[in-house]
Design a binder for these strands. Structure first.
Lengths: 121, 121
DNA sequence: CTAAAGGCTGACGTTGACGTGAGGGTCAAG
DNA sequence: CTTGACCCTCACGTCAACGTCAGCCTTTAG
């Protein structure tokens, strides 16, 4: 499929898709016309990229992670302790942020769920 | 206390503290010299700001939330339905972010080989 | 009193993930 | 065979959360 369709099917802008390629997250074929030609797996890949980006990972980190996801091989990861450590660190950061967000949401809940309290104290 | 001490006690840079003020997150008094004069509560406030920022909230969102939290108690929220709506919207955004982060963490978990923990809300 | 340390206000620089044209090919339809 | 939708490659613009530097004033230590 061409870039416009992938864009519609993933919600990522055309510009974003070209940017992902520039960052090594996608490697579409090229048609004789020079047009990018994506396969079905690209749809899943783009969704993963977006999830990880929205989680605060950089394209560089994602580029490290992605090949392992695509191949569905945890084997490589298990063999590379350096990469494993990096991933564990990212995981820890994400967990911290989930906890921070949960705390923030609890604060909002206490504000919303307690109507007509005019003053603290 | 002056800005340098607050910086040391919070880990935020002097520049960051001035930036937070610019964004309406802090409102220190001023000494006759023009120096900023922070009270003890500022320490807690800055910590809250940093947690929320690291969780991915913008200073604008934080500015909406912060004034409503004073000494961990509710102030005037119940009387303003407009504000309540804003907070509810903010809550929804936070929940979305938590879900995105959880999905991202699951991806990392599958790579690391850690068993997926069923999120208990 | 003097120098170092710390504070102040601009104001420009930085980084990451794109947005937004400019200028120009490609392709299916009428 | 022209029109309009879609694609291409530069390449500059943007926005957030600060970093950094300049030029100048205030406070503190000796």
């Amino acid at each position: 499929m061409k870039i416009g369709e992938l864009s519609r099917r993933t919600g990522a802008s055309v510009r974003a898709l070209r940017y992902y390629e520039e960052q090594g997250l996608l490697a579409p074929e090229r048609l004789p016309s020079g047009y990018r030609d994506y396969d079905e797996r690209s749809v899943v890949t783009v969704h993963r990229v977006r999830v990880l980006l929205s989680a605060g990972l950089s394209t560089a980190s994602i580029a490290e992670i992605l090949p392992n996801v695509v191949d569905d091989s945890v084997v490589l990861t298990g063999r590379c302790p350096e990469l494993r450590e990096g991933l564990a660190a990212e995981r820890a950061r994400i967990t911290e942020r989930i906890e921070a967000l949960t705390a923030a949401r609890d604060i909002l809940d206490s504000l919303i769920g307690r109507p007509l309290v005019v003053s603290g104290r």
